[in-house]
Structure formats: C-alpha cells, structure tokens
C-alpha cells in the first residue's frame, strides 16, 4: 500500500493490520516514535494523522491509507512544532526522554488545533504517561507556547 508520512509517499508491503508504529519504526527506519506499551496506555508512540493526535501503536496501517501522517522527525518543519521544541528546551523538559517524542507530538497537535488552550484544556489534552514524571515541566512548556 501507499503511505504518506511527513510529506513523502512510501510504498510498503505489510500485513494490513500492522500497527502504524512498527511500520514507521521498522519499514521506514524512523525511530523517534517510541514503543512503550502497545496498548494505547502510555502515548510514547504519539503521531499526528491529518493533523490530529493519534497513537500509532493502535492504528492499523490500513486505516491511514490516504491520510497524512506526521512524526516527530518532521516536527521542526512546522512553525508550531518549532515553537513547541523551543519551549521544551527552554523548560528543560526531558529526563530520560523516552516519552518525549510523544509528549511533543501531543503538544503540537493540541496547539495546532487550539493555539491558546487554557489550563484545563492543557490538562485534558496532555495525557501521555511519563515515568520520569516530567509533568510540571511539560505543563509549563505547553503553557509557554499557549501564551506566546
């Protein structure tokens, strides 16, 4: 099938139910998107599909035929993405970093849909797990972009 990722079209030959996560990581070799649980519980695998937040571990690749997938690798090609990354650096958000691709993508999706989310909107959208508990810093970074 044909897959659109980060503005490029790829031909891939996989079982239709293969999770998008593993197509991204293994067929396309882009490892920024992480595997944490495979069960839609953690958010480490967060990408955007047609601009909306999605968890690639529970997205059968067949279901994104014709859609535009954006991964962390393309985050800095987007103006909102650049702002989010800058805020992440300003706030020194990551610790181990493993969840952070997903956190950044969740933040970008939120801020693209709603450029100035309020406190509770941030809390409702930023639901990915972080075992290093960088939650205070994540919240601060999103707030920083929201206010700017």
């Amino acid at each position: 099938m044909e897959l659109r990722i980060n503005g490029m079209t790829h031909q891939i030959d996989v079982e239709p139910e293969t999770p998008l996560l593993w197509v991204i990581r293994e067929e396309l070799g882009m490892t920024g998107t992480k595997y944490g649980c495979g069960l839609a519980q953690c958010g480490a695998c967060t990408v955007m599909i047609d601009g909306r937040v999605a968890r690639s571990c529970v997205t059968p690749v067949e279901s994104v035929a014709g859609a535009e997938v954006t991964t962390i690798e393309a985050v800095e090609t987007d103006p909102v993405g650049r702002k989010v990354v800058a805020a992440w650096i300003d706030n020194q958000v990551p610790q181990c970093g493993y969840c952070q691709s997903g956190q950044v993508m969740a933040a970008v999706a939120l801020l693209k849909e709603n450029p100035s989310p309020g406190e509770s909107e941030i809390t409702e959208a930023m639901v990915n797990l972080c075992r290093c508990a960088t939650y205070n810093a994540i919240h601060a970074a999103v707030r920083q972009v929201a206010k700017a």
Binding site: P16, E17, A40, R52, A54, R55, V58, T59, P60, E62, S63, E124, V127
Partner: peptide, 20 residues
C-alpha cells in the same frame, strides 16, 4: 472518551476498519 477511548475507537466512534 477523548483521553481513554478515542485513540482506538476514533473521535468519530467509527473504530478502525475490521480491526477495532
């Protein structure tokens, strides 16, 4: 729903083909 269900069943509730 948005935080717990929509990732699999879709914001539109339509699931994912025959898989979900």
């Amino acid at each position: 729903y948005a935080a717990r269900c929509a990732y699999c069943h879709g914001v539109d509730g339509r699931g994912r083909g025959q898989w979900i």
